[in-house]
Computed example of a mutant assay.
Amino acid sequence: MSPNGRLTKELNEVGKVDPTSGVRAVAVIGSNSRELKGTINGPTGTCYEGGVFKIDISIPKQYPFEPPKMKFTTKIWHPNISSQTGAICLDILKDQWSPALTIKTALLSLQALLTSPEPSDPQDAEVAKMYISDRKKFEKTAKFWTDSYAKAIDEEEIINRIKEMGFDRESAKNALEKHEYDESAAVNELLGM
């Protein structure tokens, strides 16, 4: 299978809503399908539970022989993710990547990282220090950040509000996805502002 054929097949799989895994990625509308927006549901039983974390994904031309480039756009308090830039420290996104891995397995690995941080190999030294020295404070801070920055949005509710303004469902959904569910930005686009 050609690299582009594989990417198309992967995008079809990872683009479907999968309530079991809680990971998803879709191509950015208007892009060449190498720029993706991913989401990861915070794992149950962690301080990230109830959050939906957004990730920018860039697929290099050499994919699947090079890993996708990923970075959190949702602020998160985690030792292996920069609280400032969203940069991720995860071996499969660097030197442990294998062409047998997929975009979905990379997202699932990020989700697993939320369950099992690796403070001995941190991306954010301040967060790692707190994780090691004061676990309760770490968990309280991570939960606060999840509640503040990653609360799940009800996509259908937002789509319905925009439909009530006279727009069709497909236009509303496309505008919302383009603007990462920023309702006012989507409405402004639909109004031609």
Score class of each variant (00 low, 15 high):
Thr141Gln: 14
Lys37His: 12
Ala27Tyr: 10
Asp121Phe: 14
Pro122Lys: 03
Ile81Glu: 04
Glu139Ser: 02
Phe65Met: 12
Arg6Pro: 02
Lys143Ile: 12
Gly86Pro: 05
Asp91Lys: 07
Tyr181Met: 15
Phe72Asn: 14
Gln111Leu: 03
Gly15His: 10
Glu35Ser: 15
Leu90Glu: 09
Ala142Leu: 03
Gly192Leu: 12
Lys178Pro: 00
Leu176Thr: 01
Lys104Tyr: 00
Asn41Tyr: 00
Val28Thr: 01
Leu11Ile: 04
Tyr63Trp: 08
Ile81Ala: 04
Tyr63Cys: 14
Ser133Leu: 12
Ser109Gln: 06
Leu191Ser: 04
Lys151His: 07
Tyr63His: 05
Leu90Ser: 02
Leu90Ile: 03
Val127Trp: 04
Gln123Val: 01
Asn160Glu: 14
Val187Phe: 02
Ile153Val: 14
Gly5Pro: 00
Glu156Ala: 07
Asp134Gly: 03
Arg34Met: 06
Ile132Trp: 00
Leu101His: 12
Glu35Gln: 15
Lys69Asn: 14
Leu176Glu: 03
Lys75Val: 13
Ser21Phe: 05
Ile158Tyr: 01
Phe144Ile: 12
Asp18His: 00
Pro60Asp: 02
Ser98Phe: 04
Thr8Lys: 06
Ser21Leu: 09
Phe72Leu: 10
Pro64Met: 12
Glu35Trp: 15
Leu108His: 01
Ala172Lys: 08
Ile92Cys: 03
Ala100Met: 09
Ala112Pro: 00
Gly38Val: 10
Asp124Thr: 01
Cys89Arg: 12
Met70Gln: 03
Lys37Met: 15
Lys54Val: 10
Leu107His: 05
Arg6Ala: 06
Asn4Tyr: 00
Tyr48Cys: 10
Tyr63Pro: 05
Ala185Gln: 09
Ser82Met: 09
Glu183Trp: 04
Ser58Phe: 04
Glu10Gly: 11
Leu11Arg: 13
Ile132Ala: 04
Thr46Ala: 14
Glu126Gly: 05
Asp182Arg: 11
Met1Phe: 03
Ser58Pro: 00
Leu191Gln: 07
Asn188Glu: 13
Ser2Leu: 08
Glu126Val: 08
Gly5Lys: 09
Ser120Asp: 15
Glu126Tyr: 12
Ala112Glu: 10
Pro68Trp: 01
Pro119Trp: 10
Arg24Glu: 11
Pro67Gln: 08
Lys129Ser: 15
Thr46His: 11
Gly5Glu: 11
